[in-house]
């Protein structure tokens, strides 16, 4: 097998002496969908932050398609083709849904500092196509601040996709959605991964979503990987049941 798209080795980050991520190593191949699960505070979001440059690692390396990116700025990593959604949806509140996507497309085209044209007429068709993809077209003219939470998550996905990512990081992408929508959302991500060979790494607390869509599952507890494998194996792993599933279902 060729080098995986994302390779994380020995990653470590501590906050005030407490390790949030401790010696974590894993990889994700192009076209693969990997779930990163674990109880609250396990270090999932911190992992994402280390990968997309929000945080600089204390130790360890992050490689994307063979290039070391650990410690680079988020904007630089974004330009290398890493798209991301946040656990608490981050959109541009003062703009409409379409304008959000337009700005993302402009940024992807390196046109974010142009002053010769209107932003609202730029790349509108492309923006609408992306919104169609995430089923948000009918909200295109609505302000982002007034969206339902699940809808904001969809907009975030469109923003991440506008960057034509090679790696998509999704932090709890289906939080706040109905079970139906959850599956549709993940189906969308899965289709993308398969059709355009995007690598997808996501966190999720809903086990149905995890076991229904992930190719592989990585379990994190107190910053350390305690299990890794295909969904079926993880479902039956006793340690995982103890620290996580038991926790979740209690």
């Amino acid at each position: 097998m060729t080098e995986p798209l994302l390779a994380v080795t020995g990653l470590r980050k501590a906050f005030g002496g407490v390790a949030a991520v401790d010696d974590v190593s894993f990889s994700v191949a192009a076209g693969e969908i990997v779930a990163l699960i674990g109880p609250n505070g396990a270090g999932k979001s911190t992992c994402f932050n280390l990968i997309n440059g929000q945080l600089a690692p204390d130790a360890g390396s992050v490689r994307l398609g063979g290039t070391a990116i650990g410690g680079a700025a988020p904007r630089a990593i974004a330009r290398l083709g890493v798209g991301r959604t946040f656990q608490v949806a981050a959109t541009f509140a003062s703009m409409t849904v379409r304008e959000n996507v337009q700005l993302a497309l402009l940024a992807h085209a390196g046109a974010q500092h142009q002053i010769g044209r209107r932003a609202t007429t730029a790349l509108a068709a492309e923006a609408d196509a992306l919104l169609e993809q995430v089923r948000m077209a009918r909200f295109a003219d609505q302000g982002c601040a007034t969206l339902a939470y699940g809808d904001a998550k969809r907009v975030e996905l469109a923003l991440a996709l506008a960057n034509a990512p090679r790696l998509l990081l999704m932090d709890e992408p289906t939080a706040g959605m109905s079970p139906n929508s959850r599956n549709r959302m993940m189906q969308l991500a899965a289709d993308l991964a398969r059709q355009t060979r995007v690598a997808v790494l996501f966190t999720e607390h809903d086990m149905d979503v995890v076991f229904g869509h992930a190719d592989r599952v990585i379990v994190l507890d107190r910053g350390r990987i305690i299990a890794e494998g295909p969904p079926a194996a993880i479902r039956n792993e006793p340690r995982v049941r103890a620290v996580y599933l038991g926790d979740d279902e209690a």
């Binding site: 904007r75 974004a78 946040f86 981050a90 509140a93 703009m95 960057n163």
Partner: peptide
């Protein structure tokens, strides 16, 4: 609006 989002978009 969101420096976090802006940076994540490059």
């Amino acid at each position: 609006d969101s420096a976090l989002r802006a940076e994540a978009l490059g």
